[in-house]
Design a protein around this nucleic acid. Structure first.
Length: 818
DNA sequence: ATAGGGTTAG
């Protein structure tokens, strides 16, 4: 509860000096509004009136009882107080009673602001429109403009501004501050528009007002282009006088551009270190992913004695959460508790919200739930945070309970719940919920569509993805970039590269993400040359490649076995584009060299790396060693992997596979035992196959499963056929799976083979089988499927952890890969 | 009676 402001009792009233009392209320009001959150809307009608409101009403009653007729400015103050304390009906009543007599711009302005602040922008607008021209003044227009600006409604604000000029009113610095911030809220604003606004500011002679310059800087930064950032800087440099806001706007502007270094320089130049700029700097570091720097800044802030507030804590806790430093987060939480209950629960809500995320990501979902339960006035973020917490730890039933209990379902809640279903293998439920959302009239945004489509791609649910594509067209989102990029990726992940390409060609505004996604789509499907061609086309169109682009192109070269090209692009990335290769770039190149049999070069590359090689590097060289029989280095790599991720089941399997390949069965047994001793469980093989518009999921290890039984039967038939074709030894190998439980040195479950077999069994001749599996396909399996494809004369598309393998007539699109 | 900066869920 907010502490009540000190006050002297008003009753009984000795005199009716209303002006004095009204002034006293104004003082009380200021005390109260210092405690209330700045953006607070008026409290809902159901809650009991605040002490201030009660006193205001008492005063008003006395005024009425006295028969005293308040003069206009007193009446205005009363109206303003009613409006600000949230009693809009009373304010409106007084206003209506007073008009039309001296219809007054002052009272109308109060009301317009109050309506807008409580979220009733249309009501504010109606009052605005009904106020006749003679009763208006500049401030009145300013109120309407800034109301739109605060609500993020840029265009109407500009329209009101134009009306104002047409009506013959002179804009002042308040007007321009509002207009500029309204313009900044318009997405996709062109630099030319900023320039126009800048011109009118200069013409009006208000550019020397600090607030106008500040808004101008903010506008130029929000335009988000290198040129406007320079213009913002120019405005800043020209200012003769700057305030705290100027500095903060600069810091925030550079952070938005991702230029944390420049932001830091501005920060270091500030004389008075007020806490808002520290908060901005900390959140800037968090924004750029520099969590440790954020924490360091927090530590310094604390040691110098800069006051910490809820903004500080929110950012710092968010840094701990994102960096996975759960214990640090807990320490900060303890510090908040120790520092006393100074927080106003309403304004500290973001702190509690981020705590929910912190604890649920730290594996303490029960603590998160307790914090959530203790929040008195939960907002949409609180609900979404706990919902996401449950979804992320796989408690889909608890999540659904929360979802159903939510008072207002924010669109994000739908999104989280839908993707929660999809990621837990309940795609059908997810899509049902998607329909329910539309039935309940919630309007999905393009971002929601994008996420739902992405989920379909993850799952390989092509048919569901296509359905959503249809909705997308129906709702006119086809020009949205996020939706378009998601569609492109979805089609590619479902094996439909041609479809992905069509989406790419049809998209009105392709951005660098689209290019990257399309290059990746080609690369993943083994079309290395085409990927390179598209990359060159991208360069030709003047799109700047980033580190992701190069990662993608290296992967494309890798998949298609284009060693020299890969090497060339790696060098070009460093020398021509100044991109410092990360471990992921090295991993791609080392993988590429290794698979091409150039193990020595790959090993040299590892030794030349600027930092200690991480798991991805060892994993990369391991595949090359395995294929080309460099067992010593392979074993070394696997042992390194062991040390780094001791619980990763894949490493054990890989290592035992290597030992098995060179017949060191004793070592195979040793690795198996190690795995058992350390309690590492192999994940059960699980495959999805898309057959005739239905997704089948089955566990390969469960031999009692009827579908698996069918697969076994199929393999027998296939075995006979393959023997006839002369593949006797390999046929035997395929059939080994059936007996794998009995075999002493079982190598792996090879669920892909079973899935492929099942798919072939179910499909009509000439159809394509798509097998989706988010694991790495091993060489044996690859060979086996290749043989199968010859035996059945059908195209088989298999999705690996990232890539695709197109098998046809005993060949694969990535012939050089294994 | 009117303006502008820093926070949280994905």
């Amino acid at each position: 509860m907010p502490p009540s402001p000190p006050y002297t009792p008003l009753l009984p009233l000795q005199s009716f000096d209303v002006a004095k009392l009204a002034n006293r209320f104004a003082a009380h009001l200021q005390l109260l509004s210092a405690v209330l959150p700045k953006t607070s809307a008026s409290p809902p009608a159901t809650t009991s009136p605040t002490p201030l409101l009660r006193r205001l009403r008492a005063l008003h009653a006395h005024v009425l009882a006295s028969g005293f007729k308040p003069r206009a400015h007193i009446l205005n103050r009363l109206i303003d107080l009613y409006a600000k304390s949230g009693d809009l009906p009373s304010a409106r009543c007084l206003f209506d009673a007073a008009s039309p007599a001296p219809a007054d711009a002052v009272a109308a302005t109060s009301l317009v602001n109050a309506y807008a602040a409580s979220g009733h922008l249309p009501l504010a607008r109606r009052l605005f429109d009904r106020t006749p021209l003679p009763a208006r003044d500049t401030v009145f227009y300013n109120a309407m403009i800034s109301s739109y600006a605060r609500a993020g409604d840029g265009l109407p604000a500009l329209v009101v501004f134009r009306e104002m000029l047409q009506d013959g009113f002179r804009p002042d610095n308040y007007t321009f501050t509002g207009v500029l911030s309204a313009a900044a809220a318009i997405i996709g604003l062109e630099p030319a528009h900023c320039g126009q606004l800048h011109c009118s500011v200069v013409k009006s002679g208000t550019e020397h007002a600090i607030s106008v310059s500040n808004a101008l800087i903010s506008l130029y930064f929000k335009c988000d282009s290198p040129e406007t950032a320079v213009l913002a800087r120019e405005v800043f440099d020209r200012m003769v006088e700057r305030d705290e806001l100027t500095w903060t706007t600069m810091v925030v502007g550079y952070v938005r551009r991702g230029d944390i270094g420049e932001a830091r320089q501005v920060f270091d130049d500030v004389e008075g270190r007020f806490n808002v700029i520290w908060n901005a700097m900390i959140s800037g570091y968090v924004h750029c992913g520099l969590f440790l720097e954020a924490l360091e800044m927090f530590r310094r802030m604390y040691s110098i004695g800069i006051p910490l507030d809820e903004f500080t804590y929110t950012s710092v806790l968010s840094a701990c959460e994102s960096a996975g430093l759960f214990n640090h987060g807990k320490a900060v939480h303890a510090h908040i508790i120790r520092s006393g209950p100074d927080f106003n629960p309403v304004s500290a809500l973001p702190v509690e919200n981020v705590l929910i995320t912190l604890y649920s990501n730290g594996g303490k979902i029960d603590v998160a739930k307790r914090i959530f339960d203790d929040i008195e006035r939960k907002d949409a973020v609180s609900w979404n945070a706990i919902l996401t917490g449950y979804v992320n730890c796989g408690h889909i039933d608890d999540a659904l309970a929360i979802f159903n209990a939510m008072p207002h379902r924010h669109e994000l809640a739908w999104l989280v719940m839908i993707s929660g279903f999809v990621h837990n293998g309940l795609a059908e439920e997810g899509l049902k919920l998607f329909s329910r959302m539309r039935a309940e009239g919630a309007k999905p945004c393009d971002y929601m569509y994008a996420s739902t489509i992405a989920a379909c791609g993850e799952l390989g649910a092509l048919k569901h993805g296509q359905q959503i594509h249809a909705h997308l067209i129906q709702f006119g989102y086809q020009s949205s970039n996020s939706a378009g990029n998601a569609l492109l990726t979805m089609y590619a992940k479902c094996g439909a590269v041609e479809e992905a390409h069509i989406v790419f060609l049809v998209m009105p505004n392709v951005d660098s993400i689209s290019w990257n996604a399309m290059i990746a789509a080609l690369g993943h499907h083994g079309h290395g040359r085409e990927a390179i061609e598209l990359f060159e086309q991208m360069i030709g169109e003047g799109i700047f490649p980033d580190r992701i682009t190069f990662l993608t192109i290296l992967s494309a070269c890798n998949h298609a076995g284009l060693v020299d090209e890969g090497f060339r692009y790696f060098e070009s990335m460093k020398n021509d584009y100044g991109i410092i290769p990360g471990e992921d770039h090295y991993a791609q190149l080392i993988d590429l060299l290794g698979r091409a049999g150039r193990i020595g070069e790959a090993w040299d590359m590892i030794k030349s790396m600027p930092s200690e090689p991480g798991p991805s590097i060892w994993e990369a060289i391991l595949s090359g060693c395995r294929i080309h029989g460099d067992m010593d280095l392979g074993i070394h790599a696997a042992e390194q992997l062991f040390k780094m991720i001791p619980r990763h089941d894949g490493t054990y399997v890989l290592l035992s596979n290597i030992y098995a390949a060179i017949g060191r069965w004793g070592d195979v047994a040793r690795v198996r035992k190690l795995m058992k001793d350390r309690g590492v469980k192999k994940e059960p093989g699980c495959s999805w196959i898309e057959v005739a518009n239905k997704v089948h999921v089955f566990l390969v290890n469960d031999a009692r499963h009827p579908e698996v039984q069918e697969v076994y039967k199929f393999l027998e038939i296939l075995g006979v056929k393959m023997r006839k074709l002369g593949y006797v030894p390999d046929t035997k190998f395929v059939l080994h799976d059936v007996e794998s439980e009995k075999k002493e040195y079982a190598l792996s479950t090879h669920s892909e083979k079973l899935a492929v077999g099942y798919g072939l069994l179910k499909l009509p001749a000439g159809a394509t089988v798509i097998v989706l599996k988010n694991l790495r396909i091993c060489g044996d399996c690859h060979t086996a499927i290749m043989l199968m494809s010859k035996a059945v004369d059908r195209e088989i598309i298999v999705r690996d952890v990232k890539r695709f393998h197109h098998f046809k007539n005993g060949e694969c699109s990535c012939r050089n890969y294994w």
